[in-house]
C-alpha cells in the first residue's frame, strides 16, 4: 500500500482519502498524528490543559478543556474503571451496541473559545463524520484506541512565541505525572 509521509507520521492513502474525501490530489490538508502527552491544571484560567505532542516532539498542541472533560480524559488515560459508566463510556456503549467503530479523530480548528474536531466513524461499511469538541473527541478516541490527528493549520496557528511563553510558566513536574 502506498503511504503518505506527513511530518513524521505515516498514514495510509486509504485512510487519508477517507479522512478528506473531498480533497483534490494536490490540496490534501496535512495532518499529523498526535499523542497525549499529559493533562494539567491551569491555575490562571481555572481550567485544564490537554497537551498533545507529535511523535518526534516537534509539535506541541495545548487544548484548554473544562473540569468534567478533563476528568473524562484522565480516567481513560489512567485506565480507571469507574463503578458506573461515565458519559464517554456510555457514548462508547452506544457505538458498541451497533458495532460502530471510531476510526480516528482530527482536531480541525482551535479558535479562541471555539474548538473543532471531527470524529470519523465506520458503521456497516459506511463512513460517517461527526462534528465534536476536541475534548469529547479525545475522550472517545482514548476509549476506542483510535488515533488522534491535528491539522497542520491548527499546529501553525499556535504561534511559537506564545507557546514558548506558556511552556516557560510550566514546571517540569507538571509534565511528569500523566506522562506515558
Amino acid at each position: 500500500m502506498r503511504n503518505s509521509k506527513m511530518l513524521g507520521c505515516t498514514v495510509p492513502v486509504a485512510v487519508w482519502r477517507f479522512l478528506f474525501p473531498t480533497a483534490g490530489g494536490a490540496s490534501f490538508p496535512v495532518i499529523t498524528q498526535m499523542h497525549l502527552k499529559g493533562l494539567m491544571f491551569d491555575p490562571y484560567n481555572n481550567a485544564y490543559i490537554v497537551v498533545l505532542r507529535d511523535e518526534e516532539g516537534h509539535e506541541m498542541l495545548p487544548i484548554w478543556v473544562g473540569k468534567a472533560e478533563a476528568g473524562a480524559i484522565s480516567m481513560a488515560l489512567e485506565n480507571v474503571a469507574p463503578p458506573r459508566p461515565m458519559t464517554h463510556d456510555f457514548m462508547k456503549s452506544v457505538l458498541d451496541a451497533y458495532d460502530a467503530k471510531v476510526i480516528s479523530v482530527v482536531i480541525t480548528d482551535l479558535n479562541e473559545n471555539t474548538y473543532f474536531a471531527k470524529i470519523h466513524l465506520m458503521y456497516e461499511d459506511s463512513e460517517y463524520t461527526v462534528d465534536a469538541r476536541p475534548s469529547d473527541a479525545i475522550a472517545l478516541a482514548l476509549r476506542s484506541n483510535a488515533p488522534v490527528f491535528a491539522r497542520e493549520t491548527v499546529l501553525n496557528k499556535q504561534s511559537s512565541e506564545e507557546l514558548e511563553q506558556w511552556l516557560e510558566n510550566l514546571k517540569p513536574e507538571d509534565f511528569g505525572k500523566l506522562d506515558s
Partner: peptide
C-alpha cells in the same frame, strides 16, 4: 451552546447511524 456538548454529541452520533 456554540459547540455540541457531550450529550449533543451522543445524539448526533445516534442520528448519523440512524439509531
Amino acid at each position: 451552546t456554540p459547540r455540541p456538548m457531550s450529550h449533543d454529541l451522543i445524539k448526533s452520533i445516534a442520528e448519523h447511524l440512524n439509531v
